[in-house]
Each structure stands twice: as structure tokens, then as C-alpha cells.
Design a protein around this nucleic acid. Structure first.
Lengths: 210, 210
DNA sequence: CCTATCATTAAACAAACGTTTAAAATATAA
DNA sequence: TTATATTTTAAACGTTTGTTTAATGATAGG
């Protein structure tokens, strides 16, 4: 049994509560009591609640962004022509890898991403663009190559529709999975959900322009 | 110039702030100062903040739900076989009608819907099902008729993916439209956005089951 | 061992929160 | 007009919020 330091205990408790209840509805006292650390240690180690939120997100993005980048880079290096399915596969693997990085990591990461987008009034978008702008640009480039029939603008919107499908579903995944179990008796995990959403968004992104 | 009563002034201010900043990040003091009414009048007229949130949503749902219901009912009465495009058309008109019901009504309604889904920990879903369960059931029935090749479970998830695309985009529509204008010089309004998302979600919902 | 740095703790801080109160003001009805 | 009911108001309520303080504990280097 290894000893977990205070900083990590805070991050672990915070990410779970943030994903489940959102940032505004999660108090530092709730976090520190679940983490079994002192209240003041959050400000000592992270400075403020806002910086704690960024640290929680950064812990995932620092794993996810490089994995996605190398995955995308390998695609553009190896393939002469890329299609949309290949682009999505680049996303799936780094996403599912988060589940071995942390328990329920994929769900937590996508929930945090969704909540960050709708709760932070654009702060998160700015944070991601300034810290991980390179991989975002690469992703955009690859999607453009895979969909030469679509304009930049059309791709911009369809990627946001895609992001909406994924993060909205993930942000409510706990409740939705419970409903699905009650109504259909079907057990769905996060991997099943991702493989369910792929045909949906692949068809949407690659649909002909109107 | 007509005089607006306190109750309406509160609802107008609240819906705008709720849509822009979310429920938890909007205080009653912010609402009442923008509405230029006394702080205590919220509790006097609505009882509590939670009931105010429900009232804000109810004002839209009481217009939207009957319009959608009659639209769907006309479809099942007139047509022998319905397809997915027709089902979406039933949604579009009542949605856009909210823009003449109130200024920016469509955006506000969809933002509120999205925020309610992810912020209220299931309270809103319960509220909608108990108060507007009839039209929800009818909608589900029509979608099933339009997609006989899909199982109940598959439809359940794809409708949530659809909802995610729409409400997530709408919840961030203000920022997204600004970005799109800066990057592409393109002016997009809410109607243009809806007509842009239709091909996306139509292709997604009607895509073959894996 | 002593000291200096880092970490943890209990307590208090000011500010903001939703809500309640009781009196004043306004509107309604007889 | 008088009496009754409704609405508005300023003030205060008790909690909860994020943050700070100052004292204590722990750890490592000389």
C-alpha cells in the first residue's frame, strides 16, 4: 500500500465531484472532506479553486493531447489519403487509454470537458487553445484532408456538433446509463457508448453539404 | 408603452441570465438588479429559486410542447409512413416559432434545456416527464415509426446524441457565432444554425445500425 | 542538535448566498 | 371613504462560500 500525497488526494476527489456535480456546485469543503485533507490545503497547493479546476483538467489533457498528437501525426505520415473513420480511430484509442490511466478516466475526462465548455464561459476554450493549440490545429488539418468536399466553415460547425453529441452524453452518462438499464435492461459501459456514438457522428460529419 | 408586472420582469431577466451563465452562477441579486425589482419579490412570487427555474422553463415549454404535439399528431394522422426528415420538420417550426414568441427565444430555450439537463442532476428530466410526458411519448413513438430498422435502445441513445449536438451548440452559440464571424467572416443566426445542424443529425439518426 | 524549509491544522475572515420578516405602500371592494 | 387584501420594500436572518492567518508538526541539511 502506497501513500498518496495531499495534492493527489485533492485532485482525485475534485475530479470525481466536478464530473458528477459540476464546478459551481462542488465546494472546496466537499472536496477536502471526501479527500480527507484539510480545507486550507487546496489554497496552499493550488492557490485558488479556479487553479484547482485547471489542474484537474491539465492532468488529463497532458496525457490525452500528446497521445492524440502522435496518433494523428502517424496518420498523416503513413497515409496518402485519410478518411473520416481513420480520424475517429485516432481519437478513440487515446480516449480509452484514459481508462487505464485512471479508473473511469474516459468518462471523467469527457464529463469535465463538457462541463468546462458550458460552465466556464469560454475560459476553458481559451485555456485549451493556448496550452494545447498545436494538437487542436493538427486535428483540424486532418479533418480537412479527410473531407475535401466540405468548407472550413462547415467543418467548424460539424466538429462542434460532434463535440456536443459526445460531451453532452458523457456529462449525463451516469443518469442515462441508469435509465437505459431500467428501460431496456441493458448494461452499457463507456466503451460501448463510444462505439455507439461513432456511427452517429461519422455519418453526420461525412454527410454531403446541403 | 405597456407596463410590465414584477413577475414578468423577473422571468425576463432570469431567463437571459440563466441561459448565459447557468443556474448556479446566477444569483437572485443579479436577477433582481437586472430586472429592477426588489430582491424579496422572487420569493414572494415564486417561492424559491428552484421554483423560479421551473417557471422560466415552463413559460417556454407551455408554448413549445402543444405546438410540437399538434405538429406530430398531424403527421401521424395524415401520413401512412413517416420518415426522419418529416419528424425533424415537426421540431423546427415550433422551435423557430419561439423566436417570435420572445426575442432570441429559440436560443434561450435550447440553452436552458441544455443547462437544465447537465446542471440539475436529473430534476429537470423528471419535471419534463411528469408535466410534458405525453408529447415526449408521442415524439418517441413517431421516431420509432420513422426508423423501424432501429431498436428502442438504439433510438434512445441516438436521440440523446441529437439532443447533445443541438443544446451544446446552442448553449455556446453566442461564443461560437463570434468565433465563426472572426475566422470566416460569416454571419450566422439561429435559423441558419438549425438548418446547418439538420443534415448532421438526420444523417446520424438514420444511419444503419452497426 | 539545531535550524530552516515545507506541510498541515484549527480558526477566523469577509463576502455572497437564499430566505424570512415586518412595516410601508398600493390596489381592490364594499 | 373605509376596510381589506395584495404587493413592494429595506433590513436582517442564518448558512455557506472561497480565502487567509497564525500556530503547530514534520522533514531534511549542516
Amino acid at each position: 500500500m502506497q501513500k498518496i500525497d495531499t495534492k493527489t488526494k485533492i485532485l482525485n476527489a475534485a475530479e470525481q465531484l466536478f464530473a458528477e456535480r459540476g464546478f459551481a456546485d462542488t465546494s472546496l469543503r466537499l472536496i477536502t472532506s471526501q479527500a480527507e485533507v484539510n480545507l486550507a490545503s487546496v489554497n496552499y497547493h493550488f492557490g485558488s479553486k479556479k487553479e484547482l479546476i485547471q489542474a484537474v483538467l491539465a492532468r488529463y489533457l497532458d496525457v490525452f493531447a500528446p497521445a492524440l498528437e502522435s496518433s494523428l501525426q502517424a496518420l498523416v505520415d503513413d497515409e496518402k489519403r485519410v478518411d473520416q473513420i481513420q480520424v475517429f480511430n485516432c481519437l478513440i484509442e487515446p480516449l480509452l487509454a484514459l481508462d487505464s490511466f485512471k479508473h473511469q478516466g474516459t468518462t471523467v475526462f469527457l464529463s469535465l470537458l463538457g462541463r468546462g465548455y458550458v460552465e466556464s464561459q469560454g475560459h476553458l476554450r481559451w485555456y485549451i487553445m493556448t496550452h494545447y493549440g498545436k494538437v487542436v490545429g493538427l486535428f483540424n488539418h486532418v479533418v480537412r484532408e479527410a473531407n475535401p468536399h466540405l468548407s472550413k466553415e462547415e467543418i467548424f460547425w460539424r466538429l462542434h456538433f460532434t463535440l456536443g453529441s459526445v460531451v453532452f452524453t458523457m456529462a449525463s452518462s451516469k443518469a442515462l446509463i441508469d435509465i437505459a438499464k431500467a428501460d431496456f435492461g441493458a448494461d452499457v459501459d463507456i466503451e460501448g457508448l463510444i462505439h455507439r456514438v461513432i456511427p452517429f457522428i461519422a455519418a453526420g460529419v461525412s454527410s454531403p453539404a446541403k
